[in-house]
Simulated scan of single mutants.
Amino acid sequence: MTALRVLIADDNPVVRAGLSSLLATTEDLVVVAEARDGHEALHLTRLHRPDVILLDVRMPGVDGISALPHLVCLAPVLMLTYSQEAEVVREALLLGAGGYLVHGEFTPDDLLRAVRDTRAGRAHFTPTAATAVLTELRSSSQQQRSVGQSTERVHNSVAFGLSSREVEIMDLIASGMNNQQIAGACFISEKTVKNHINRIFAKLRSTSRSEAIARWLGTARPGVTGHG
């Protein structure tokens, strides 16, 4: 079996020595070069053509994040760092990192397995990095839902011809508020609320709150919503 060639990029000589010693304990991995910053990592990667790059984030001169988009064009990169901020994890992954390990959260065997898997295209994350990824996915999903709801709301207001005040009141109706509560929320009289509701019902071609809500939220039966 041909050993996987590994390049270590970290400004801390103690960390580099420790990683080199660990990788030397197995016959299928060999350290071909060590770099002190992103610039040197790029130079040595072009020179030695490693199969996997272990890359720190914070280094003097050219840091890991700055070097990452150039390095991933040459070899798979596994982030190996003390940096655990969610935005750093996110940026590293968007720039092409094949995994993200935070020091202190993995065993020697975890690291050896991660190096091999990175070469094979299988991602590895330690708990902090995995949590950051999960948080980002949830945040993106919530944003997409929010955008979708906002888009649907704007579409409905245009489709039914509601004014901005009528949109506000229709949203409050859909939230379950009665006329008195709507009047208090909008700082208007109940009589004014009733007048708005009469106009809203006419525009939505509805005769009841439940029917208006169904049309407003797009849940009415096909063929009976909108203006025909």
Rank of each mutant, 00 (worst) to 15 (best):
R122K: 14
D110Y: 04
L29S: 07
A75Y: 06
L134G: 08
V62N: 06
S141L: 13
A174F: 04
L134Y: 11
G121Y: 07
A33H: 06
F187S: 11
N12C: 10
I173Q: 04
L204W: 08
L47G: 08
L47P: 09
C73D: 15
H155S: 14
A92H: 02
A24N: 12
A17V: 08
D28Q: 07
R122T: 11
S20D: 12
R58E: 11
G184H: 10
D56L: 01
S66P: 01
A67W: 04
S208T: 13
L112R: 06
T225E: 15
G161S: 04
L111H: 02
G99K: 08
A24K: 13
R145F: 10
A86Y: 00
V102T: 06
T45K: 02
R116E: 06
P69T: 06
A9E: 00
E34Q: 15
G64Y: 00
A86I: 05
I200E: 00
E87G: 00
Q149R: 15
A202Y: 08
T107K: 00
V77L: 05
H103V: 11
G223T: 04
H70A: 14
V133N: 03
I65T: 01
R58K: 11
L7W: 03
G99Q: 06
G161Q: 03
V224S: 13
D37C: 09
A174M: 05
G99N: 03
Q180S: 13
T192A: 14
G99P: 00
I169R: 09
R138S: 13
A129I: 04
A212K: 02
L80C: 01
C186T: 15
M1R: 14
R46I: 08
D56Q: 01
T45L: 03
H155K: 15
S208W: 04
N12F: 09
H196M: 00
A35Q: 07
F187L: 12
G161M: 03
T192I: 10
G218K: 01
T135V: 09
S157R: 13
R215L: 03
S163N: 03
H103C: 12
T126L: 03
L95M: 12
E211G: 03
G96T: 03
V52M: 05
I188C: 10
I8H: 09
L68I: 05
V32D: 11
V15M: 10
Q142H: 10
S208N: 01
R46Q: 13
L47R: 15
R46D: 12
I200A: 05
L29E: 04
A123L: 08
A67Q: 00
R119M: 10
V62P: 07
K191G: 15
L101F: 06
Y100D: 06
L71M: 01
L80M: 08
E85A: 14
A123R: 14
T118W: 03
G226P: 00
V31R: 02
A92M: 03
V88D: 00
M79A: 06
V31W: 01
V158I: 14
D10A: 07
F187E: 12
T135P: 00
E136T: 14
A212V: 05
L22H: 02
R5H: 01
S21L: 12
F187Y: 12
A9M: 06
A3Y: 02
T151E: 14
G18M: 01
D56I: 01
A120Y: 09
